[in-house]
Design a protein around this nucleic acid. Structure first.
Lengths: 134, 134
DNA sequence: ACACTATATAAGGATATGTTTATGTTAACA
DNA sequence: TGTTAACATAAACATATCCTTATATAGTGT
């Protein structure tokens, strides 16, 4: 149990992955979207997502060729993830620090994709929004 | 800020250090006590404490030759540490997993030391107990 | 079938990490 | 003053981590 807890903390204890978790707290995103938003190489993003998934911090869902990730709503029966939720919140300070990335996020053209997604799996679309209202 | 948060999570994201944090949540302990309780080499304990201190997760206090550590009561204005408190709690599962260590903790002879400590710094002695009552 | 897109995986290299053994350093104390 | 106890630090090593570049896979649309 201690090793498992440490694994989760370690997975989040890296700036890139913590940033990814914060963006996933805003909305579900696929590899190519994260690649665009974070302005990082695709293998880099893929490898980080593997670490997050190994720690059970995220779930993945395939749609067409794309692999969408979202924060795992119930990790370890909510025992571990619950205390970490506050650390994943996007704070006003984060908005400043991640201004560039947030701008790129807003520039993503997902409308048609999202519509397709609705048709594909309507029940799984409840967004995992945890944005802190300022 | 993200880097700082990641640093704190990373510091706790290692089994030995997470275990140390759990024992510190029970009581203030010095290097030699941790060495005895965890049955680890003294440099190993010292180096881990350095990491925890760099992340501002613990404070240290010298008394005679000994270096006592306790969990920093207010890390980052309580912003980071507060969500992590629950992860530091010693659960019943921990008691099983750390049975040997807990036994050695109970075997520590500190009575005279603690009495000296009271005389030395009376105001700083409020214990940082966060034991989960089962 | 072909090209394209999204993703995974492999290989490589630089750096970081966890540990041990050995050696300083400092304070208490006989 | 010399010894011991508590601790810090250095050196060395194996392993892990993060990243890049290159390549493979697999589904989509034409």
């Amino acid at each position: 149990m201690i090793k498992q807890t440490a694994k989760v903390l370690k997975a989040m204890g890296e700036p890139t992955r913590l940033t990814i978790m914060k963006f996933l707290s805003l909305q579900e995103l696929c590899i190519c979207e994260l690649t665009a938003v974070l302005n990082m190489s695709q293998p880099r993003v893929s490898q980080h997502m593997k670490v997050l998934k190994d720690a059970d911090l995220v779930t993945e869902r395939r749609f067409k060729q794309k692999n969408y990730f979202r924060i795992n709503p119930r990790v370890m029966d909510g025992f571990i993830i619950e205390p970490l939720r506050k650390l994943i919140l996007v704070t006003p300070e984060d908005m400043l620090e991640l201004a560039e990335e947030v701008k790129r996020l807003g520039a993503l053209d997902r409308n048609r994709e999202v519509q397709d997604c609705i048709n594909d799996c309507r029940e799984d679309l409840t967004p995992t929004r945890m944005v802190k209202i300022v």
